[in-house]
Simulated assay, not measured.
Amino acid sequence: MKLIVDADACPKSVLQICMKLARDYSIPVWTVASFNHNIVSEHHVVVGNSSQEADIRVMNLAQAGDVAVTQDWGLAAMLLGKGVHCLSPAGREFDPAKIEFLLEEREAKAKFRRGGGRTKGPKKRVTEDDQKFEACLQNILTLISV
């Protein structure tokens, strides 16, 4: 088992939480990011900055039973199909039964924006987000480490 972090848009606090919990559970952390990011990790994979390049590398690294951190719903859907446990940096575990709804919602919002509509962006990250993420990751690691 390994913890894979789609580190292109991952907050530094989330990356630190991943490193800490991975040490506690003795599992390796793999980070994947474009060369534009300065990430210090024992297992860091640098990719180009082409669209989807980091996602493709994450998919190639992932195996059933791994845990992945990503805020990309499309990547999460593909990882869930491989048997990978996925959660977002906000501490939301992606559920295989609900991912299709999330993807449909994402497409509807994108269509609305293409038509000139405006949607709200993400809320500013707060300390509670880090706490929620840590609790969610801890729960996943506890369940699959048994």
Rank of each mutant, 00 (worst) to 15 (best):
T142N: 12
H43K: 11
K98A: 14
I17S: 04
E53I: 07
N38E: 06
R125H: 05
G116D: 06
E134P: 01
T127S: 08
M1Y: 11
W30T: 04
Q63G: 12
V45G: 01
D6A: 08
Q52S: 07
V29L: 05
D129T: 07
N49P: 01
S26G: 06
R118D: 05
M19S: 11
K82T: 11
I27P: 01
D55M: 04
D95K: 01
E104Q: 15
F112M: 15
E128T: 06
G74K: 00
Q138M: 08
L87C: 07
L102Q: 14
R57A: 13
P122I: 14
V47Y: 00
A97Y: 05
V40E: 12
K2M: 15
K132W: 02
V146C: 04
K124C: 03
K111E: 15
G48I: 01
K109S: 13
A90L: 14
A64D: 14
K20T: 13
G117F: 12
E53V: 09
I4A: 08
K124W: 08
E93D: 04
I140Y: 01
I4D: 05
A33I: 09
L61R: 06
G116R: 02
V14D: 00
W30P: 01
L80W: 05
D66E: 13
T70P: 00
Q52D: 09
A97W: 08
A97S: 10
V14T: 10
E105C: 11
T70G: 03
I27K: 03
L79M: 05
C18F: 03
F94C: 06
K132S: 09
L141K: 00
S145V: 09
W73L: 15
R23C: 12
G65F: 14
L141Q: 03
H37N: 10
A76Q: 04
Q63P: 01
H85T: 11
K20F: 13
I140T: 05
T127R: 09
M78Q: 08
Y25P: 02
D130C: 04
A62Y: 06
I140L: 04
F112H: 14
F112V: 14
Q63R: 15
I39C: 02
K120G: 15
P122Y: 07
N60G: 09
A64V: 13
E128I: 10
A7R: 00
S26I: 10
V45F: 02
M1T: 15
H44Q: 11
A90E: 11
G121E: 05
E134R: 04
D55L: 08
V146Y: 04
K12Y: 07
E53N: 04
S26E: 10
Q71C: 09
F35K: 01
A22K: 02
G74N: 05
N36L: 05
A7K: 00
V84I: 08
E93R: 06
V58A: 03
L80H: 03
E42N: 07
D24I: 07
Q63Y: 15
C136M: 10
I4N: 03
M19L: 12
K123L: 10
D129H: 13
S50I: 10
K20Y: 13
G117A: 14
E104W: 13
M59V: 14
F133H: 00
I140A: 03
K2P: 14
V32P: 00
A76G: 12
C10S: 05
A108S: 15
G115F: 07
I144N: 03
T142I: 11
C86P: 04
A135H: 08
S50M: 14
E128H: 05
